[in-house]
Amino acid sequence: MSERATSTGKAGMNLTLKIWRQNGSSDRGRMVTYEVKDVSPDMSFLEMLDVLNERLTLEGDDPVAFDHDCREGICGMCGMVINGVAHGEQRATTTCQLHMRHFEDGATVTIEPWRAAPFPVVKDLVVDRSAFDRIIQAGGFISVPAGSAPDAHAVPVPKDDADAAFDAATCIGCGACVAACPNGSASLFTAAKITHLGLLPQGQPERASRAKAMVEQMDAEGFGGCTNTGECTAVCPKGIPLDAIARMNADYLKTASK
């Protein structure tokens, strides 16, 4: 990591990008090298790719496909493995919030999609994360019609539970946990959803069946098993803690023992 440089005084950076190009799911795919010149240190990583794509379009080449939406770190769309780290080495940061000032001038940057069998590559850096949707559909909801928003103090929630539930609820479902896990496990994602609902009063009636259904769906999707390496929480842009996985296991074991 270089010293933080500002746009003033630091000229544009030149980078060598090695990007995974794959033209559809049936293509085998390959790494392709591109040179980008005069990159501003104030650009976000995605803006840097935008600059590359503008050039590729003008040259008549196919622009690099990548997912993105809000570009302010809250939607969960963006995500790529940058130099072997999901969302890059900057902690608690989505790819869109990663800035080029964290890279050295002249550096080579490797950019790959999330790698997991349940996340097939759609094109280039875009992967299909519908597996996450199906895990949510299996039980990541509350069936009781809740009506309009109740008064905030109508159902008391202990402060610690409210905080832990909120921390878990910050999960944006980007999939970095799966990408970083040496086992390709989706445990942190699933556990975040189970924790978020399981700690609140509204989530209690379905707590046991939810854990069972979501864990079984997660396994059915072909994600690997959790060995508690902690890689997921280290790359999580929202810093979802590993405790969530223990809570998921506790809920799951309770149903399994019944």
Binding site: N183, G224, G225
Partner: peptide
């Protein structure tokens, strides 16, 4: 069986050397 599940869950490996972030 965990190792085999892990291998099945990531059939295409990363090209870049994966840098462990958890320090374990």
């Amino acid at each position: 069986s965990l190792a085999r599940r892990a291998a099945k869950a990531r059939p295409v490996k990363y090209a870049a050397r994966v840098k462990p972030q958890a320090g374990g």
